[in-house]
Every structure is written in structure tokens, then in C-alpha cells.
């Protein structure tokens, strides 16, 4: 377990978090269509190891589609996506390899309802990583403690609150010891008081140096942990900047309008 980001728990200001020069994800000139609908247009994005990127944008702008392309839940039609040095092609071996290195949390958690919390967390390590069961259970309990629900390990997802389920989903991804985590609106299906518990977990994760890409409308979270905010509209990256600059001094009209709408009230 010494290779996990979790073992060292430095509590440092987000702005001081180190971003290495190593490239984690490189997307160049990527395009995607749904039928004849051009969802993603000429996306260029380089993510360095240790970066925390927040993606914002209006509904339907292609945020989900873009991060889902990174672990090939959606297929892109042109351009290149290189994750951890492996290019995403239709080669199934590469896809499975990348998926096991990239964790993902969904808006609706997507836990497996027929398995207990513990089984949800140990399933992939046992079957994909071929970890011995005992070790997988230990790792799972370690991460369930990190997300503060070790006592729910033997319950089923249906017996947990939304916030707890989302934290289980995070723990489940972490059990694969991913090098990159993707979050697709992890808090938008939750009640306000549950949002905080999930965000706290994510903040802790960010402080431990995990490379993260989060689609979220939680601008407080963006200010606190992100080192870059990306604004998307109509399938394109319209603006990206450091959080303070992005919020205080947006450049494009589209961004200004969007920010006035979500921060306005």
C-alpha cells in the first residue's frame, strides 16, 4: 500500500500543491460526433500529474462526453488521447489497462446493488488486478476508513444515504490505486448537507496529490482546490484559467454570462 497517494497526508494550501512536469493526459485535436451532431470540437488539453482541473459549462456543452472519452466510455472519432503514455485506440487491451489506471465517479454513483459495500470495493482489485482476497479486503477497509464509512462495509448500497453511496463509489475507485480520478458531477444528485461530506472527501484526495478532473458546479470547491478551471460551451473549450482569475476576471462574454447565472443569486 505504500504506493498510494493516501499514505502521506499533508495538509497544505491548495495553491501550494505541487504539479509535476510529467504529463498524465494529453488530448490533441480530438473530435467526436453523435451521428451527425458534432459534440466535441477540436479539444486540446494537457493535464500534468498532480493537477486538479474543474470543468464547468452549461448543460449539453459536452463536459460529460469529454471526460468519458478519457476512459473510453465514449469513443472519439478523430484526434489523439494519450493517458499515462498509452494511446486510446480500439485495442481492447489498452482500453482495459487505461480503465484500471483511471478511476471514475458518476453522478448516480453506479454502485452494484447486488453486492455489499465491501464486495463493491474488492471486486475489481480481485478480478482485474488479481489481488489476493485478503489483501483486497484490507485495502478496501483502508479506503472505507478514509471516506469515513468503515462501519457500513457489510451493508448493501440501497441501505446507504446518497452521500455515503458516493463516498463508497470514491473508495471503490481508489481501491484500484488509480493514478488519475475523473468525477462527473459527483454531488449534483445529492442533498446540500451530503454535498459537503463528498466534497470534503474530494478535497482530502486533492491535497494528497491525486490527479483529478472534475465536472462540477461547485464553484467553492473549484476555488479551494483547483489549479485550473476549464469552461466549455458547445463542445469547445472556451476559456481556461487559474480559479481566482477565472472567477474574478473572466475574459469571454460567454463565461461572464455563465458565471453571472450560477453565481448571480
Amino acid at each position: 500500500m505504500s504506493d498510494t497517494a493516501f499514505d502521506t497526508t499533508p495538509v497544505i494550501a491548495p495553491s501550494a500543491l505541487k504539479v509535476s512536469d510529467e504529463v498524465a493526459i494529453e488530448i490533441s485535436n480530438m473530435n467526436k460526433w453523435y451521428g451527425s451532431f458534432h459534440v466535441l470540437r477540436d479539444i486540446d488539453l494537457t493535464v500534468h500529474r498532480g493537477e486538479r482541473i474543474v470543468i464547468a459549462g452549461p448543460s449539453g456543452s459536452g463536459k460529460s462526453t469529454m471526460i468519458r472519452c478519457i476512459n473510453r466510455l465514449e469513443e472519439h472519432q478523430s484526434g489523439k488521447i494519450i493517458v499515462d503514455g498509452t494511446e486510446l485506440t480500439s485495442d481492447l487491451k489498452n482500453i482495459d489497462k487505461i480503465r484500471s489506471e483511471v478511476g471514475m465517479c458518476f453522478q448516480h454513483f453506479n454502485l452494484f446493488p447486488h453486492l455489499t459495500i465491501l464486495e463493491n470495493c474488492t471486486l475489481a482489485p480481485i478480478w482485474v488486478r488479481k489481488t489476493p482476497k485478503k489483501e483486497a479486503v484490507e485495502t478496501a477497509m483502508h479506503f472505507l476508513e478514509k471516506v469515513k464509512i468503515p462501519d457500513q462495509a457489510n451493508k448493501y448500497p440501497g441501505q446507504l444515504s446518497g452521500g455515503q453511496q458516493q463516498r463508497v463509489a470514491i473508495a471503490r475507485s481508489l481501491c484500484m490505486k488509480p493514478r488519475i480520478m475523473l468525477f462527473d458531477e459527483p454531488t449534483s444528485a445529492l442533498d446540500p448537507e451530503m454535498i459537503k461530506e463528498v466534497l470534503d472527501t474530494m478535497i482530502e484526495l486533492a491535497q494528497e496529490g491525486m490527479t483529478m478532473i472534475c465536472v462540477t458546479h461547485e464553484m467553492g470547491f473549484a476555488r479551494q482546490v483547483a489549479n485550473r478551471v476549464i469552461f466549455m460551451d458547445q463542445g469547445q473549450i472556451v476559456e481556461q484559467n487559474e480559479p481566482e482569475e477565472f472567477f474574478n476576471n473572466p475574459r469571454s462574454e460567454r463565461t461572464k454570462l455563465f458565471l453571472s447565472q450560477i453565481l448571480g443569486h
Partner: peptide, 12 residues
Amino acid sequence: GQYEGADSLGLD
């Protein structure tokens, strides 16, 4: 979501 959950974990 179940298929996506399984896929995202790298299950074949």
C-alpha cells in the same frame, strides 16, 4: 450505469 460502473473499473 451498471455497465459503465463495470467498464470504468476495467472489468472485461
